[in-house]
């Protein structure tokens, strides 16, 4: 219930109406969106019970490792009601063709694979918010100072997921495991996404805000 309350408001991409349509415009819109979402994610993380009790250094390390997984999981959940489209924001929905034109076809294919998995599982909002928090706590940062404290956070979130499943999904005793088994594909997709946006940064054609740059650099 804490995680449901902590869930951020809807976000809008608001593409610049004065800019002519192009791949650069689409990527600029997405990078701006990601920068604003990062601010929201940092605020959200503070509402995860136990997160703020970690050292500031460990809070930073978890977010630096997991931010793209959290961004992608949010896109995946928003896209569940759609067919073969990715809801980057309420006003920014991309289909296969648009993704191809923007150079994001690989990412589109990977994220859709995740969407299909969660559709098949009929994932619920309670499960989605818990998985997002688990992705953060389980981000495998190599720079954790107090692993015991991070393990405690992982255990608490894992327990929340198990409690939810044992009360709401008694018909499938393996449901929690099935949900956790989606996380490797999420990690793989996020790694690809970070590499892709890092190479866009290196090419220097797309303007990027400071927080997005800072987080991209922390991952590479």
């Amino acid at each position: 219930s804490h995680l449901l309350v902590a869930e951020p408001e809807k976000i809008y991409a608001m593409p610049d109406p004065t800019m002519p349509e192009s791949d650069i415009k689409a990527l600029t819109t997405l990078c701006d969106l990601a920068d604003r979402e990062l601010v929201v994610i940092i605020g959200w993380a503070k509402h995860i019970p136990g997160f703020s009790a970690l050292s500031l250094g460990d809070q930073m390390s978890l977010l630096q490792s997991a931010w793209m997984e959290i961004l992608i999981l949010s896109i995946v959940f928003r896209s569940l009601p759609y067919e073969d489209e990715l809801v980057y924001a309420e006003d920014y929905i991309m289909d296969e063709e648009h993704s191809r034109l923007t150079g994001l076809l690989d990412l589109y294919v990977s994220i859709l694979q995740l969407v299909r998995k969660y559709k098949k599982l009929k994932v619920e909002k309670e499960e989605f918010v818990t998985l997002k928090a688990i992705a953060l706590a389980n981000s495998d940062s190599m720079h954790i100072e107090d692993m015991e404290a991070v393990q405690k956070l992982q255990d608490a979130l894992h327990e929340a997921l198990q409690d939810y499943e044992s009360s709401q999904h008694q018909e499938d005793p393996r449901r929690a495991g099935k949900l956790l088994m989606t996380l490797p594909l999420l990690r793989q997709t996020a790694t690809k996404a970070v590499q892709h946006f890092y190479s866009i940064k290196v090419q220097g054609k797309v303007p990027m805000h400071k927080l997005f740059l800072e987080m991209l650099e922390a991952k590479v």
Binding site: G43, Q64, E214, A218
Partner: peptide, 15 residues
């Protein structure tokens, strides 16, 4: 940590 100053600042903000 100096390199990650925005993240650091946002985490320290109370809101």
């Amino acid at each position: 940590k100096e390199k990650h100053k925005i993240l650091h600042r946002l985490l320290q903000n109370s809101t």
